[in-house]
Amino acid sequence: MRFRSFLPVLAVGLILALVPLVTTSKQVLGTFIFAGIYAIAVIGLALFSGYAGQPSMGQAGFCAIGAYASAIVATKFSLSPWLGMLAAGATSGLVGWLIGSLILRLSGHYLAIGTLGFGIIVAALLKQWEWTGLSSGMRNVPRYEFVGDVLKTEAGYYYLVLVVLLVVIVLSLNLVRSRPGRALRALHESEIGAEMLGVDTATAKLRVFVLSAVLGGVAGSLYAHYVGSITPDTFEFTISVEMLVMAVIGGVSSVWGAAFGTAFIWGLSQAIKALPDLLPSAVKIPSITQFELMIFGAILILVMIFMPDGLVPTMTKRQRR
């Protein structure tokens, strides 16, 4: 009955499934894999930020917890990396629940700052803990196993990330369109209005915060087992900001917006990286990463000024009129 609403997911899935047939370039597939991993974490962030209406600036903290939990299970305990992914989701979710119980009492910009503090504390603690390899982090994290070595190829891993991403999108869309999702959208617009209609807003916010933490953890696990090594700096504060930018640019209260925002930012950064080859050789850009960041910052400011709802909601609104 709801099949029609999942046609877009199917279409996007089919188109993306063609990519490894077109190219086997490790670089291209790797770019898509990273974008997909980011998108999972960003959708998690959008579910929370969009619905609770607060920018969380600590999503990378949950990715870090997931990545480390997964890596520890796979290397220190030599268990299956799949168990690692399970541990990643569970640990991030548990930490999310603990932290959320404390900081979700805050509102407005205090909550944003609280989540920011959380992310920074996680990175600082990981640097301090001998077990997690201090600043040098963890190495030799194995890939997941599935039908022999399938997931050790780029194409194989690409399909894994694609499947996880599509599942996450479908689950998120289901959530948004059903009772708890309606309650969340309602409390975003009027917390007291939703309360008086029997919505336990505190619990609802906590649950979606835990969910976003779990998705962050899963993304962290996918990252750790793809790259094979992680350090605390992999998940520093700026990554949280980057994720928030992705969520916000796409449209923070929209699952598709989050996916679109991730793709947009990712594409943009690739385009900027390719820029020096296009420019005449006389023009020299001293540091491409910094130049990239500068354009990021400028775009972020412009989007926030002119379309504070993000690209996707702004465009759909225009369409409707």
Binding site: R179, R182, A183, R185, A186, E189, G193, A194, V199
Partner: peptide, 13 residues
């Protein structure tokens, strides 16, 4: 009211 929700969604909450 919840302005971004439809009428029926408002009542369903």
């Amino acid at each position: 009211i919840f302005p971004q929700l439809t009428l029926i969604e408002n009542v369903m909450v």
